[in-house]
């Protein structure tokens, strides 16, 4: 498997980032729901939010790298078998996924830094507060963070449903080429 993307194939870097981000986001969603329910004396009461914040900050870096890689390496063409509405919907979903992920990360950052304190990433370094002195900023950011996370999960469901529809109903390589195993089939699909 090549590292870079071609017009037919996803390369190793894009595939790895896609699944890494997917796993991270599911983990963060679960961790987020879990940590706000912990009792004060739970051993995870401090470490769960610490992990959630630190991973969120790293995810931001990964997402930036992902966008940069898209620019550098390009994106495979849509399969010719895809209908116009499918392509349009997929583009909208992909774009919105990116946007929502960034907004969730940013709103999470605002919760922590709303009163001027920085956000510590695994104790390695601290991201300074940029916006503070806005009344109830932490509450607004918190509401946005939570509702966007639910919205993201709905969107991810649609995204996955699309992939499964292509795989099982259309029997095309949309899903397999994101798994890095659709090479030959993709070529065949292009020609047909």
């Amino acid at each position: 498997m090549k590292l870079g993307n071609s017009s037919e194939q996803w390369g190793g870097v894009s595939i790895a980032i896609h699944w890494l981000v997917a796993l991270t986001i599911f983990g963060m969603f679960g961790l987020g729901l879990y940590m706000v329910e912990l009792s004060y004396y739970d051993p995870w009461y401090k470490s769960a939010p610490w992990l959630h914040k630190s991973v969120g900050a790293l995810l931001f870096v990964v997402m930036l790298a992902r966008l940069a890689w898209r620019r550098v390496s390009g994106v495979p063409r849509e399969l010719v078998s895809h209908k116009t509405w499918e392509v349009k919907l997929a583009h909208w979903v992909h774009g919105t996924l990116y946007l929502i992920i960034f907004l969730i990360i940013f709103s999470g950052y605002l919760i922590v830094t709303a009163k001027g304190s920085g956000l510590s990433v695994f104790g390695w370094f601290e991201i300074p507060s940029l916006i503070s002195d806005v009344e109830h900023l932490e509450d607004m950011a918190g509401d946005i963070h939570r509702w966007l996370a639910y919205f993201l999960m709905a969107l991810v469901t649609l995204h996955a449903a699309g992939a499964l529809k292509h795989h099982f109903i259309d029997r095309d390589v949309t899903l397999t080429r994101m798994l890095g195993i659709g090479a030959k089939a993709a070529g065949r699909n292009e020609k047909s």
Binding site: P49, I111, V112, A114, K115, S117, H136, E138, G142
Partner: peptide
Amino acid sequence: SSVDSNHAERDK
């Protein structure tokens, strides 16, 4: 809602 303990996450 004006509660203030000088810690955004705690106040939230």
